[in-house]
């Protein structure tokens, strides 16, 4: 089910450009990228290595500001070029969720605590945070591993916990950078389907950077990046 184009936008980016270095060492990593993802939509960002996918993702994640362009998340203008229009850290806390190639779970916290910490950062009281974290782990099918440290979890289980953490504060946008790169094809597909489920059931916009061509059918839309240019890809048949 593709969300209607009239749905509320999770994120809109306008003419996003990122230039590293200056003069002879200047590298244009991204040029005039425009993108709109609505809530409940899951999109894939495809392209070869060095095409600028991660640059776009980190710019949208408010951790690597663009050189120029604008970013609006959940209807709130947050960046005008490199200039923040809101407290970026607080905004990330409330509105964004991240999933990476590596799960990046905090090694000294068990699965439920890894989710709980995201909630406590957002001032949710510990008891409520734990209850909500357990619900999320249950939703993602890893509740039975709640008390295990990351070392004791498989790669797929770790990614599920990472997705649970990303969902914890009910963000309007989830950004995933190669989330299945470290997983086998079966588990990789499971994770991709999870993103689709999350987007459609929880109403978050989900942007997934991926090389994995086998799971494109789970996405509502695909975009391709090459040499810093973003263009609309094929709409998957699924």
């Amino acid at each position: 089910m593709t969300p209607p184009s009239t749905a509320l936008p999770a994120i809109e980016v306008f003419d996003l450009t990122k230039i590293y270095g200056s003069g002879n060492t200047e590298v244009v990593a991204m040029k005039d990228a425009n993108l709109r993802v609505v809530k409940g939509e899951v999109i894939a960002l495809l392209g070869p290595s060095g095409a600028g996918k991660s640059t776009l993702l980190t710019a949208m994640g408010l951790i690597n500001p663009p050189t120029s362009g604008r970013i609006v998340i959940g209807g709130v203008p947050v960046l005008d070029g490199p200039r923040p229009l809101v407290d970026l850290r607080a905004f990330r806390r409330h509105q964004l969720g991240f999933v990476f190639q590596k799960a990046n779970l905090i090694p000294f916290l068990n699965a439920v605590q890894n989710v709980q910490v995201a909630l406590e950062i957002n001032d949710v009281p510990p008891r409520s945070a734990r209850k909500r974290a357990m619900e999320l782990l249950d939703y993602l099918g890893v509740a039975d591993r709640a008390n295990n440290l990351p070392d004791a979890l498989s790669g797929g289980q770790q990614q599920r916990v990472a997705v649970a953490r990303a969902l914890a504060n009910e963000p309007s946008l989830i950004l995933a950078d190669e989330p299945t790169a470290a997983l086998d094809s079966h588990r990789g597909r499971q994770v991709m389907e999870l993103f689709r489920k999350v987007a459609h059931e929880r109403g978050a916009g989900v942007i997934v950077v991926t090389h994995d061509q086998r799971s494109l059918d789970v996405f509502d839309q695909t975009y391709e990046m090459e040499d810093g240019q973003l263009r609309t890809g094929q709409t998957p048949a699924g």
Partner: peptide, 16 residues
């Protein structure tokens, strides 16, 4: 340091 970066990414305050 990696975990601290992750906490910051999640929006953790400096006080934490």
């Amino acid at each position: 340091i990696h975990d601290i970066a992750m906490l910051k990414l999640m929006g953790a305050r400096n006080s934490m």
